[in-house]
Design a protein around this nucleic acid. Structure first.
Lengths: 340, 340
DNA sequence: AAAGCCTGAACAACCGATTGCATATAATTT
DNA sequence: AAATTATATGCAATCGGTTGTTCAGGCTTT
């Protein structure tokens, strides 16, 4: 059983030729006779030859490997993104090394070191929540490794980008709420260290301005994307004198927390209060009333990120001007929670 | 700018020594003087030396790479499993090559070929839905590559295993339903080509027998794990004269379809009909009433699978008797849908 | 028929790290 | 002081492909 791997030298010996000829024959080199090619092919098959990709890569200075760093794999959205990335890299013969930063800057740095040591030909990264400076990313660029940030990104570094149009999507969501007759719109924001949540907040604010609606500072709740903070914020809203009549949340989980809390407090969704989430998690369609949300097309985002990376790789230099970027337009999925 | 990678030869030249000494120094070989070690370390750092893992692996005949084949990455459960696997492999310095079979036997075969060509040191696989014969897996074993199946498995092949106790969990769920006073229990089964769904069905049947309850053949619905089939089956149930008073589904999505359909038809859950799913998808806790389900501990399963693989690898032979296996005990999460 | 050209294959170096064996120098023993 | 042993390093082969250069033999050209 696999006692010993067959090499091109073994094939060469059997055919009384040399390894170089076998190598060229297997690669359809033009200067090898057709009979030789056929013969090598045949015995290679008979002997169960499998090329050693390591040796080939060592010689060629390639690794055919892409590194991927994500905060955590077990989120629906991220899993979808990974699926999209894989669908691009695998057919091209590239391997994917997947690392989790566990939302820790320290682990993210370690991951980067590992990937550099593994001589990956490119790195795809969605930043940890603790990442607010780009210094460790600088290492990647200095090593000459093509870099693409996706979803959670930071600006002060030259890299490819694959992003959702968070600003536009947020703006669209608020416009939708207004079109449904809601005028006092609150926002559950995320951690403003992160670009994506700043963009969603900005989109929300821009829409209010567009519409001439009131920007009430006490209607914006920060760090409110998980379930419990959503419950908490909803309680506060219920207790307000001048209560908002709609919530646009930067995350579905907090929207879900609010959903449950509003109903417990006897508020009817969508009549008394409208509710819109972000991410289109599967549960948004199953609860009753269904929660309007924003589909991020994770798989598309993953594909876009991988494509941008291969663009950079193909260019031969890790630094092109301008660095390529791809913006995915999310889709507003309207459900009962916002349709009066 | 990474113009050129620093090698041990470069370090050797700078120190007027040889590559072998540098190599030994970096590996703390006992016969190298402390000053030499310190000196090499220092200049290595100064020159920005990064070991070329490819060359090292080629020389050692190792690849430090594990292959993973899953039907599809974008399911919550699978993502969780991958996270678990990664948490074991990464700290050990192993890379993961992740492949998706897209539920296709053909792609699964291709994936296996790719992984063998990549000289992975082990393969973790959860089978595609089309896979009913083990012939292609046989190739892996013949190549001497340690193999572990997890979640979706097939019996007729010697391999490590990491499984949920589907039989026991199903049985427990039905016992729970009976304890709540339900006596006419239906089952939504999956595709019986797959061991996991056969086990769940068997656990269901065993529980009925344990309890002396009626095994009514028309109360078992096959290929009913997705949403739409769940809706369909629920309609059929509503139309029955002798209607079941509870459903144990082998999947959460079909349970969700039934949940919606029963309510549309004016049935009260849990009073008129009990409902239990399988997988503990996030939405089961958010809908109202919450759906009792079975938590599969994907992350634990992934860790178990990886650990079993490393056991086999450590044994030095891909075939040990008996092949190691690990059974994860899922947990019944009781919610309102089954508590009268 | 001699010179030149083509074609196809062999030779050998190389990618970068590892390691068994040989060896020079220093340290120890008698 | 000569012989033995230790210690630290150098040498060279190796892992398995790849590729620039060389070379042998047959074919064409004039």
């Amino acid at each position: 059983m696999a006692a010993k791997r067959v090499t091109i030298h073994d094939i060469a010996k059997k055919l009384n030729t040399t390894a170089s000829t076998v190598s060229r024959a297997l690669n359809n080199h033009p200067k090898i006779s057709d009979e030789m090619i056929a013969g090598v092919r045949k015995t290679a098959r008979e002997m169960g030859y499998k090329p050693n990709i390591l040796a080939s890569n060592l010689r060629n200075g390639k690794t055919k490997t892409i590194g991927l760093i994500v905060p955590r794999i077990n989120r629906y959205f991220i899993a979808d993104v990974i699926a999209g990335i894989e669908s691009i890299t695998f057919p091209l013969g590239y391997n994917l090394i997947i690392c989790q930063s566990d939302e820790s800057l320290l682990k993210e740095k370690e991951n980067i070191k590992t990937l550099i040591n593994n001589r990956v030909e490119g790195i795809l990264i969605s930043l940890s929540i603790e990442t607010t400076t780009p210094f460790h990313l600088q290492n990647i660029v200095e090593e000459g490794i093509p870099l693409v940030q996706f979803d959670r990104t930071i600006a002060e570094i030259p890299s490819g980008l694959a992003l959702n149009d968070n600003f536009g999507a947020a703006r669209q969501a608020v416009h939708h709420l207004a079109a449904q007759g809601y005028t006092k719109i609150a926002h559950f924001a995320g951690n403003l260290n992160q670009e994506i949540y700043r963009s969603r907040l900005a989109g929300y604010q821009k829409a209010l301005d567009d519409l001439g609606l009131n920007r009430n500072a006490s209607w914006v709740f920060y760090n409110t994307i998980l379930y419990e903070p959503g419950v908490e914020a909803a309680h506060q809203i219920c207790a307000m004198n001048d209560r908002p009549d709609a919530v646009f949340s930067a995350g579905d989980l907090s929207a879900m927390g609010a959903h449950a809390t509003f109903r417990e407090n006897g508020l009817n969704i969508p009549r008394d209060i409208g509710l819109c989430g972000f991410a289109n998690e599967p549960f948004t369609q199953f609860v009753s009333p269904g929660i309007t949300s924003i589909n991020q097309f994770g798989s598309l985002l993953g594909k876009a990120a991988a494509e941008v990376l291969f663009e950079i790789i193909a260019s031969g230099s890790p630094k092109i001007t301008p660095m390529p970027r791809r913006i995915i337009t999310p889709e507003l999925i309207v459900r009962q929670s916002t349709t009066k």
